[in-house]
Each structure stands twice: as C-alpha cells, then as structure tokens.
Design a protein around this nucleic acid. Structure first.
Lengths: 363, 363
DNA sequence: CTGAAAGCGCTTACAG
DNA sequence: CTGAAAGCGCTTACAG
C-alpha cells in the first residue's frame, strides 16, 4: 500500500517557458522597446495612438499573455485577497469558490479563505488580515451586509467587494442581481397559472436581499390586485430547519396556500419535505418555488422551479475588480464599481396550476 | 449605482517585498553562498551535514519562506494541475476545492478545473489537457475509478492522484480512508444499541468504495452472528433520488428494518424524508445513518449520525503530492505514494435504540 | 511620448 | 562538497 517509485513517464519542459511569447518577442515584432510594450499592457498611459495600435497588433498576432509570476516579482504587487465567510451553505460556497479561485489563479493572485464567526470582533479580524498580509477582501453574504465590518475594513484602507448585497456601499465594489425583480417574475408566473393564495417564506433579516425579495413578492401581488394576507407571510432565516417550521405554519392556516415561494432553495426543499409529510402532491396540491438554483434544486424530487443566480460569475467579477484595484490596472470594459448581473427564471417540475383550476386564466 | 472612484485609502508596499527574508539574507546569516541555501531548500543533495545544519538554523531563525513566484520564474517549473470532475455533488466539491486550491495557492501552482462528461472520449480529454498545458491530474470520485481514463493518462505520462478510491493504482498517487472499517464501526454501534434488522442502501457500483462500504456492513453483521437478509440490502447510486426509492422499498418490507444505513449522506437524507412521509419518528421508530459528513448532514433534521470523511484534507494531500512530483522535490515526511487518512464516527441525533428496547443490551 | 539600465528572488548550468 | 555568473519575464525609477 506504499512505495516510493516515481511516475513512469514525464515530459519536462526546457528551461525557457515552452515557447510562449514574451515582452521581448512583442517588442521585436512591433519595433519598439520592452518598456513601451509594458506600458501598453498596463496603464496604457503616455503612449501615442499609433504606437499602441502597432503593439496591440503584435500582441494579438503572437497571442501574448503576460507571465504573472514575473510581473509579481518585478512589480512587487502581490495580490492577496481574503475571502471571509460565515454560515457556509456549501452549495453556495462551492460555486463561489469556483468563480473566485478560477479568476485568482489566472491572475496569480492568492485567495486566503478565512472562516469568520458571526460575532467576530472586527479588530481581531483586521489583525488576522494583517498577519496574512491580505490587501483586499471579498465579502459573500451575509458578511457583505455587516455594517460594522464594512466600516472597520474601510478604515483599514482595504479595498473590498460585496457579493449579493441589497445595499452596495459607496466605499466598496459590489456585484449584485435584481433580487426584487426576479422574485416578482416568479410570483407573477404563479399568478398567471391561477394561484391567488401564495405563501411566502422570507429570508434572514441579517441579509439585505431578504427585504428585496419580499418586496418583489408583494409587488407582484399588488400588481395583480391580490390583497396581501399577513398569515401567508412567515419568516425564515434561509436554513432548511427554518423552512420546515415556516412551511408547517403555512399549511396549518385555515385557508392554506396553493403555492409557496421560499426565498431560497434550502427552505423550498424543506417546504417540499413538509408537503410530502402532509400527504400533499407537488405540484398537484401545492406548488413550491425557491431561489438560487443551487445543486439542491435538482437533487430533490420533484426538481425545483427557481431563480438561477449566477453565483460563480458574481464571485469571478468581484475577484477581478479587487485584483485590478490592487494592481491599479483597470479591468477592460468595466469601470463601474457596482455591477448588476442578469438572472434567470428556471421552470422545472415543482410548480403548476392549482388543482381547482383546469386552465390558466391568462396564459 | 455606478461610479469610478477608487478605494479611499490604500497601503502600498515598497518595491521590495515587505521585509520578508530572501535567500540572500539566509546566505549572509549562515555564511554560505546563495547556491548552497538553494540546495538545502530544494533537493538537499551535495551538502555537508554541518553546512546543512547552519543553513537550516538560519532559515528557522529568520522565518524564511521561499518566494514561489521567483522559483517559478527561475526554474521554469510551472505546475498546472487539471482537476477533472463529473457528477459534482456540490457539498463534496466545495470541500474538495477548499483543500486543493488552498494547497495550490500556497505553492503558486495552478489548478485548472475541468468538467468531464461521464462518457468523455479519453483521447479528447488528453487533447484538452495538452491545450491547457496541464502537467498533472487530480481525480476525485467517480473518475478516480475509471480504468480507461487512468490508462490513457498514464500513457500520456501525466502524474495523477486518485482521491477516495477503493483501488489505488500502482501508477498513481492515492489518498484514501478505510471505507470498510468505518462502515463496520457504524453498523456495530447500531447493533450495540439493540438493532438487528438493519437495512443498507448501497452506493453507485461505478465507485470502488461502494463495495468496500457494503463489505463493512456485512462484516459487522457477521461478527454479531446476525444472518444477512437480502431484502434488507437495496442498491442506490449515491443520489438523493435513488435514496428515496431505496428507502421506500426497505420500509415496504414485511418485516421492515429498525435502522437504515445509507452509504452516503444524500441517500440518508432521502431515507429521512421517506420515514417522515410514512409518519415514522426518527430515531424513535427508525434510526438513519449516513456517510461523508457533508454539510447536508447538519442541514437536515434530525442531524445525521455519520462518518466524517476528511475530504478537504484528502484533496490537500493529493495536491501536495502532485506538486512535489512535478517539481521533483519530495514532500517532507511523505514518501509513500498511497496515503490513508483517519476518519471519525460522528454521533448525532438520527440514531438511537429501537423502540422495543428500553436499555441497550451491551452499552 | 520613448527607451536603456537595474533589479525583483530564485535556479540552472558550469567551474572548481 | 561549494560558489560566481547568467538569466527567467517583467516593471520601476530615471533619462531624454
């Protein structure tokens, strides 16, 4: 079960890096100095339009890609991004990591993954960040909404990025989606299918998106002239367990809902479990919808109708923004500090018209 | 919602890298040349014992850590590890990524995350790997057990590492746990609590650990002189959905089990859902146990008694092995190609003595 | 607006 | 067993 033999075959490269083109190659092709190539690749300042064109053409032709290791060495601009997280929903986290770490890897930036207790003292945290020599901070939810933390980080002079916040800070980068609009679309779909008693399970109030999603739900009802029923809105905290309790309350109502919209997939999965426990058929007796489209949405049965949030892409863009900030090199085509990405309504098997409706009244 | 202002404050480093010690500092302190320091840090060959001691002391005193970017540049030994995955259980994947990417980041190695269809043609895959200039391959389950793939990769001369395989290849690195022993422990716990009708949901036969875990189950029964009942062993494929069907069959038995051991957490969660649908109390009427201790184990209710598999650490070690192989620098303290890590039985709330037992017969 | 020089921290041949 | 030199690919002052 153990030996010390080496790999059978191995293809070693020569000392020079394969034959990837270098600045020198580009400089030769464009008939300029190394310096000028470097300027075009970086700030792009103090270069005549004509020269820039020549250099860019050479770069494109040779397929030149800067060697990040060399840049780091020469420039001393090491990027060390702390990824702070708490309450890791693993499905969320894995998508997040794929995006963030992928981008970091390509740019030879380091990501330092740091677990951050709910009640961490910001001072302690800043100390830790210093120990890791972090020079930027990535804040996924719910930390993206922690005002105290944001303030403290800002005071420490660290560039930071909020992902999926409902309240972007003026002092931070932010990548968001339209949480209200997406929820509104989802609820409207249900209404169009004939539902009018639509229950809602809200999210953790410590995340600003919770408010936005609920506002979307309320707006869709209002637009359809459906009077809101307070007993159909119950609070959850994004956890499966809270979804269990919330769904029980909803179904215990004297006039129970024909559809439940949960503000994330975990709680929707819980609602599904409760429905089954009550002997209800989904979607025949009850429609159930979620939000996020994490892996859980297709793990359970029936598969969840939900909103696809591009978590990985959000993380990727936030990471790119921080890298650009630390390196002081603008990201091509992006000069906004706050970016909003599109999301999509994914129709799967957990929704349908209510039983007492044969035909949808409008569709 | 968009502006171009820059971060308010920012702490830039001077051109030289903070004041991290360099080889030159170590050389000065140890009164040797740079060359000698480099030799000690790397192969450690051709250095007198006395000199080595001096250098090592200097390294320890200064807290010297090699600058990977510089090493890569000078040595041209870029490590590019392809992480091939299929059927991503996101809970598994996120833990895996944390371990693997963390290790890669520290060592300035690149991880290229590549989704790999079940029926991918190995030739196509090898082509893709070449395009990415990958020089090592990480194989989490189920790909770690794909013989064709392993053969093809070996022929391509790429060092590879299997994670959580039941059948380590002589041509690969491997990091495993004792799947059979762990399952045996779990089943023995149930037997000690008084269970004798213990159902089992097996895993996907395309993973070699499925066999091992089932063997552990059978061994525990045999050791306790409990005759195996074929109707209590049903096959699953590690998916939630397969767990749903398997649990239904188990509970439909004329003499249903008082406990169900599922060979992973997803299927255990499904068994729990089915139990609830049947109006059974867990663990009062039925004990349910899983395997892996992914996030799902504590997401659901009651929390799952399961085996904690150190996925992140397994991924970390496998990654370290590949990096060492590509750099031809042995990992300190590890010269085995196959490593087996410990795992742990985590007792939570989903198991207990069967209802007809007041006191455990042996505990 | 453009470039020649020095240097980032390390390793690889090459000598002794 | 040990070391002086050259160079990896890039950027930063410094001159023009």
């Amino acid at each position: 079960m153990s030996s010390t033999e080496k790999s059978p075959t191995r293809g070693r490269k020569s000392r020079t890096n394969a034959n990837r083109p270098t600045v020198a190659d580009v400089a030769r092709a464009a008939e300029v100095s190394l310096m000028t190539v470097s300027r075009v690749v970086n700030h792009g300042t103090n270069v005549s339009e004509e020269t820039r064109k020549k250099v860019e053409a050479a770069i494109a032709e040779l397929g030149y890609v800067p060697n990040q290791a060399a840049r780091n060495l020469a420039g001393g601009r090491e990027v060390r991004i702390a990824l702070l997280y708490s309450n890791p929903s693993s499905a969320y986290l894995s998508e997040f990591l794929m995006g963030s770490l992928g981008e970091a890897s390509v740019n030879a930036a380091q990501i330092i993954v740091e677990y951050c207790e709910e009640g961490v003292r910001p001072a302690d945290l800043v100390g830790k960040l210093a120990a890791h020599r972090a020079n930027a901070v990535l804040l996924p939810p719910p930390l993206c909404d922690d005002e105290r933390l944001l303030k403290r980080l800002q005071k420490a002079g660290l560039p930071m990025a909020q992902i999926a916040t409902g309240r972007p800070s003026r002092h931070a980068y932010a990548v968001t989606i339209d949480d209200a609009g997406a929820t509104e679309d989802l609820v409207r779909l249900l209404i169009e299918q004939g539902h009018s008693r639509i229950g809602y399970i809200s999210g953790n109030p410590n995340q600003t998106v919770s408010e936005l999603r609920q506002a979307g739900y309320e707006k869709a009802l209002a637009d359809a002239d459906i009077a809101p029923r307070p007993d159909l809105i119950v609070s959850g905290d994004f956890s499966y367990r809270s979804g269990l309790q919330a769904a029980e309350r909803l179904l215990a109502s004297t006039e129970p809902p024909t559809a439940i919209v949960a503000s994330n997939d975990d709680m929707a999965a819980a609602a599904l479990a409760v429905a089954h426990r009550h002997g209800l058929d989904v979607p025949g007796d009850l429609s159930v919808c979620g939000f996020d489209d994490t892996a859980m949405a297709t793990t359970i049965w029936p598969e969840l109708t939900t909103i696809r949030q591009p978590i990985s892409e959000m993380a990727r863009q936030a990471t790119a923004m921080l890298i650009a900030d630390v390196r002081e090199s603008p990201v091509a085509g992006v000069d906004a500090r706050h970016v909003r990405l599109d999301c999509e309504l994914v129709r799967r098997a957990s929704h349908g018209p209510p039983r007492d409706m044969t035909v949808s009244p409008r569709a």
